[in-house]
């Protein structure tokens, strides 16, 4: 695999992570991370939508009239999101109910449009597909990390399975209710950014 393709795939996971570095896709990252299950489904949906949209737009890139560029992109992304939502409603109804509004909001998820504009319009279909998938994966990674802490500390479970043993509760340990509430997700994200920038000094703002 040539070096450029490798970079396309690996970059968005850490160094060019869409959430912590590019600051895209924050909205849903915060809202659906209360439980690992929801974060996982959302992450998977974003991977599929970003990858396929980038791929399709890249196929169309030489034929789209410039004046309607943004609208055509929006239509393609909306199509993907609606199909994913309909599939979820049919095969994963209880999760779809939890994610509800936020699945529709994938359309406005800055990552999708951002990657189409920055990569899909200027590159061949297969690299665009890979770029979309790995950006989605970088996004999913952050989602899973935040959800891991929020579910563990807030409900004592992981993926719905009890992890903190009953004996802890009996001894007086209580679930941290604050972690389940929205503001904590932001603070967790701030800490993740702090850790990442301590490791990668070149990302620090002066």
């Amino acid at each position: 695999m040539n070096a450029k393709l490798k970079e396309t795939i690996l970059n968005p996971i850490f160094k060019g992570n869409p959430i912590t570095v590019l600051v895209l896709g924050i909205c849903s990252a915060l809202a659906v991370t209360v439980q690992l299950k929801g974060a996982f489904v959302m992450g998977l949906s974003v991977i599929i939508v970003t990858g396929l949209s980038s791929f399709v737009v890249s196929l169309m890139r030489n034929s789209i009239p410039n004046r309607v560029r943004i609208i055509v992109q929006l239509v393609v992304v909306s199509l993907m999101v609606i199909v994913v939502d309909q599939l979820l409603k049919a095969f994963s109804y209880s999760i779809e109910k939890q994610l509800s509004v936020y699945v529709g909001l994938i359309i406005t998820n800055c990552i999708v449009m951002g990657r189409i504009e920055a990569f899909g319009l200027a590159n061949k279909p297969i690299p665009s597909l890979l770029d979309g998938i790995s950006n989605g994966a970088g996004y999913a990674l952050i989602l899973l990390i935040v959800a891991f802490f929020r579910e563990l500390l807030g409900s004592g479970t992981l993926f719905g399975m009890r992890v903190i043993p009953e004996s802890f509760y009996a001894a007086g340990y209580m679930n941290n209710g604050l972690v389940i509430l929205p503001p904590m997700a932001l603070i967790l994200l701030g800490c993740i950014v702090w850790i990442q920038r301590s490791i990668q000094k070149d990302l620090q703002e002066k």
Binding site: P65, V72, V75, V76
Partner: peptide, 25 residues
């Protein structure tokens, strides 16, 4: 690709295709 007629035909085709896929799904 910036020709007016082309733009109109293009958008019409895209809309019809999208509507068909959505209705089918």
């Amino acid at each position: 690709t910036n020709n007016n007629i082309y733009t109109i035909i293009y958008t019409t085709v895209v809309v019809i295709l999208v509507a068909a896929i959505l209705a089918f799904t």
